[in-house]
């Protein structure tokens, strides 16, 4: 369960109950059951409507009022959910929830769209389901990777 069948990530919130097994008087050993268990788990997992979860971060962007539009547009393109805005002096504070996957090199983008006049901070918020299309893509990427290693 340390390497899940979808993308090789940790599996969580799953209960596994082993309720039966068969053995061979001579050939059954530790490793045989490990492999069988692993394969059975993998099969069951794919049948159980699997869902990928991704880390979501609380994002707080402090931006001069006149640049707010640009920052908002960019955030929406990053699959963010805007939670609210408030004024702080000549600045606006935008609060949003954004997937970690969309935050790569955010510093750089923010700097370039605001000429370095905005600042932001993040903290981990929660795990949330990944949208269907993104999940399909991530799974395809993972399969490709696995095949590369084995091929």
């Amino acid at each position: 369960m340390e390497e899940g069948p979808l993308t090789g990530s940790y599996v969580r919130d799953v209960r596994v109950m082993v309720y039966d097994g068969k053995m061979h008087p001579v050939d059954s050993n530790d490793i045989s059951f490990k492999i069988a268990g692993m394969m059975a788990f993998k099969q069951a997992f794919t049948r159980a409507d699997p869902q990928l979860l991704e880390p979501i971060y609380d994002l707080e962007v402090v931006v001069p009022e006149e640049l707010m539009g640009e920052v908002m547009t960019d955030l929406q393109a990053r699959r963010s959910i805007i939670q609210g805005m408030e004024a702080r002096g000549a600045y606006q504070v935008i609060k949003a929830k954004t997937p970690l996957a969309e935050l790569d090199r955010y510093t750089t983008t923010l700097r370039s769209i605001t000429q370095g006049r905005a600042n932001f901070s993040t903290s981990f918020a929660e795990y949330a389901p990944v949208p269907y299309d993104v999940q399909q893509k991530l799974m395809a990427d993972y399969n490709e990777q696995v095949e590369e290693v084995h091929g």
Partner: peptide, 21 residues
């Protein structure tokens, strides 16, 4: 390189399976 994202995998309904190795 871009860091990997610590995804989690879970399921939304029960399922059964068996495997013979």
């Amino acid at each position: 390189v871009t860091p990997r994202i610590p995804y989690r995998e879970t399921i939304r309904r029960a399922a059964e399976a068996s495997y013979r190795h």
